[in-house]
Design a protein around this nucleic acid. Structure first.
Length: 701
RNA sequence: GCACCUUUAGCUCAGUUGGUUAGAGCGCGCCGUUCACAUCGGCGAGGUCUGAGGUUCGAACCCUCAAAGGUGCACCA
């Protein structure tokens, strides 16, 4: 078939892209083992594993585009390029998604058999995983499918267990009864990162407790009070410290000891605080210092329990009003500030107020882990793009607190712990002997994700770990810098002694056109897959790169993608022109001065594209290539060539013939990482003996 | 409360270490094209680079202050 017939018009991405992807996948070049570069420098990117619980969204499309761009560039630079794909079981997130599905079906997870529920979610996740993998293919991801990992792979779980055991042995993982964030809807505890603070206006009640008046927004927790506290320097209450007061409450006589603690602010309210250790984290801390009893009066569903007498069974919000009214009746209520502004912690998923509860949970002591990496962030052994994330990271690392890794959900990796009376064994294997009870809690998803780089590469013995760890760059969303990036850095250093990557590139959130975050409820969600279907993946990719600077939000909208579809069309037609009007030559002819100048100009483009890609300035590189191809190559060089190719002078014709082809081939190479499908298709068509562009050499200036 | 980000053409955004008339895409106006172009080309209008000071021979870019929008962290009942 002649090139004229194959480069027909117009370019049709929908027919081309799957065919080209298939060509790549079958070539085996996604795997570094097949590149025939045993001695070449490795270049590794570990893919942030998408949650296997739904369709890919715009944020996924950004990371696929940028990471694929980087890995294609490095592959063309001759590196042993590995982009390792994965999928995340996404514990809590998936459980929430699945619960919604159950709700729609009129079912609920509560009361379901644990194993049954686990199996259902597993089936759901595995089918989503396959769906998601095909979407990654559609977006052109040149990742090594033979190395794909799932967060629930037995090998991955083994490594996670080893880490937990080691943390336990080192005294960094411990079981403790501490005040934790409890979501009454999702019936699990959450880490600090999974909470959000929201500003609220609530009534502040001033209550009379014996000789004192004190302020609280939560009168309903009074049944769990175990002390009153004042500031040790507060002259007003000095005589009371250490004494016990007794007075009539709503459900009987109350006896409370008065203690002194610096935590109390003399200037707030009346300077007296009731201490409710079970239902307030600050009060819990006070209780620990003073050895106070912890009395739970609110249950896991956010209802007052049997210790609250006639108020038992009431929900917290109802109880608050009723208790306040009753106190008013008996004269305990002194006054109410109706609009007291304060912040409340809510569940980041359902936005319900979190109930602090004291429960035995597993915690990881993060301070030592953080201290080991702080100097390496400070001296930029690990470098952030954009660099202001360095400050954000350091601030967080310096103020890090213990991490609650226990979740009361079935969908996750079970915490490998066994209990018998007072004995605790941390082990992935069942202990010998009778009567051991297995822990039912699962790990916070991020506990396992935090080990992803070395877990996927098979730490400590597998060849991949030796060949590809540490990796070069972690490219992910800025919003998960604490959830994920910080933990990978700390766990990577802790387990392997090395930082898991050299550079961290953080892209911003993709928003709708109006700059608002996309959300189903706002109805402004744009599907990257639909855009790819409509305009082609190459156009989508260009639209996601150009104008996308790291760390800032990027708006995605249809017109933008359409514009790059036109660019793809332009490139296609440029190629048709060159194909129709020039011939492939073997030897380089003598070039005219004009053509020498054009090649020199092209060299400038090669130089700056290379430099920009080396410095993660994809947006500039893409824009420059766009501009060069369209407004230089097409508008000027090709237009001027039309008369030159009709010249009588053979030297001029041969020179132009060579130059046009040379420029086109170079542009295809330069554009390949950005627009892999169309460039490969043209490459395949225009060369008599086509190689695969994906593994062609990057041009040199 | 503390920190960080953003503020450049009607819209969405670039502008790499401060250096000549500040750029792109979309949109808009006029003209021309089907001879690579399910189109494209040419020309054009449109910006006191949020504001006020300062540093400098020179500032969209560096410093100080302020304003608006956004995000994160913390929070005392």
């Amino acid at each position: 078939m002649s090139t004229d017939e194959k480069l027909t018009k117009p370019y049709n991405p929908k027919d081309t892209e799957p065919r080209i992807y298939d060509l790549w996948e079958k070539s085996g070049y996604f795997s570094p083992n097949r590149l025939g570069r045993e001695n070449a420098e490795p270049y590794t990117i570990i893919m942030p594993p998408p949650n296997a619980n739904g369709s890919l969204h715009a944020g996924h499309a950004v990371f696929v585009t940028i990471e694929d761009l980087i890995i294609r560039y490095q592959r063309m630079r001759g590196k042993r390029a590995l982009w390792l794909p994965g999928a995340d079981h996404a514990g809590f997130e998936t459980q929430v998604v699945y619960e919604k599905k159950l709700e729609k079906e009129g079912r609920t997870r509560f009361g379901m058999d644990r194993d049954e529920l686990y199996k259902e979610i597993l089936t759901f996740t595995l089918s989503n995983k396959e769906f998601m993998e095909n979407q990654l293919r559609q977006l052109g991801a040149s990742c090594d499918w033979s190395r794909e990992k799932f967060t629930l792979d037995p090998k991955v779980i083994d490594i996670v267990y080893d880490t937990f055991e080691q943390l336990y042995k080192d005294g960094l993982a411990y079981r403790g009864s501490r005040s934790i964030n409890w979501c009454t809807k999702h019936q699990t505890s959450l880490s600090e990162l999974e909470t959000m603070s929201v500003d609220r206006e609530d009534p502040l009640y001033y209550m009379k407790f014996g000789p004192f008046t004190l302020a609280t927004v939560r009168p309903e927790t009074k049944f769990g009070d175990t002390a009153l506290a004042v500031n040790p320097t507060d002259e007003r209450y000095k005589e009371w410290v250490g004494k016990e007061i007794e007075f009539e409450g709503l459900i009987g006589t109350i006896k409370l000891r008065v203690i002194a603690d610096d935590y109390v602010d003399k200037t707030f309210g009346t300077g007296v605080v009731k201490i409710t250790p079970a239902h307030d984290p600050n009060d819990f801390a006070v209780a620990q210092r003073h050895n106070l009893a912890v009395v739970e009066v609110i249950d896991q569903f956010g209802k007052l329990n049997e210790k609250c007498g006639k108020y038992a069974g009431l929900k917290v919000e109802e109880a608050r009003k009723i208790v306040a009214e009753d106190m008013k009746k008996v004269g305990m209520l002194v006054k109410v500030d109706e609009k007291y502004k304060h912040a409340v912690k809510v569940c980041y998923k359902c936005e319900r107020t979190l109930e602090p509860r004291v429960l035995p949970q597993w915690f990881v002591r993060m301070k030592p882990l953080a201290e080991a990496v702080i100097p390496l962030v400070e001296d930029e052994t690990i470098k952030f793009y954009p660099d202001h994330y360095k400050k954000i990271m350091l601030h967080w690392l310096r103020n890090i607190e213990d991490w609650n890794v226990s979740r009361q959900i079935v969908w996750g990796i079970p915490i490998p712990v066994w209990y018998r009376d007072d004995e605790i064994i941390v082990s992935k294997d069942s202990p010998v002997g009778e009567d051991w009870i297995k822990e039912t809690d699962t790990f916070d998803t991020w506990f396992s994700s935090g080990q992803w780089p070395f877990a996927t590469l098979g730490y400590p013995d597998e060849p991949d770990y030796k060949n590809f760890y540490p990796t070069q760059v972690m490219e992910t969303a800025g919003e998960i810098i604490f959830f994920w990036v910080a933990r990978m850095i700390m766990f990577g250093k802790y387990r392997t002694g090395k930082l898991p990557f050299k550079d961290v590139y953080l892209h911003g959130i993709v928003t709708a056109r109006d700059g608002k975050k996309m959300s189903k409820s706002k109805g402004n969600v744009i599907s990257p897959i639909e855009l790819s279907d409509k305009y082609g993946t190459d156009a989508l990719r260009m639209g996601l790169i150009i104008g996308n600077t790291p760390g800032t939000t990027t708006a995605l909208y249809e017109e933008k993608i359409r514009a790059y579809k036109l660019f793809a069309n332009k490139l296609w037609n440029v190629s048709r022109y060159v194909s129709d009007n020039t011939e492939e030559t073997i030897a380089k002819p003598r070039l005219t001065e004009e053509d020498e100048a054009l090649i020199k100009e092209l060299n400038g483009v090669i130089h700056s594209t290379t430099k920009n890609l080396d410095n993660y300035r994809f947006y500039i590189a893409a824009e420059e290539l766009y501009h060069y191809v369209w407004h230089n190559f097409a508008d000027i060089i090709i237009e001027q060539s039309k008369s030159k190719l009709k010249s009588e002078d053979k030297v001029i014709i041969e020179s132009k013939n060579y130059t046009l082809r040379y420029i086109l081939m170079t542009c295809l190479r330069l554009l390949h990482p950005f627009m892999p499908f169309i460039t490969e298709e043209i490459w395949q068509t225009i060369n008599y003996n086509p190689s695969i562009l994906m593994v062609e050499e990057w041009p040199k200036a």
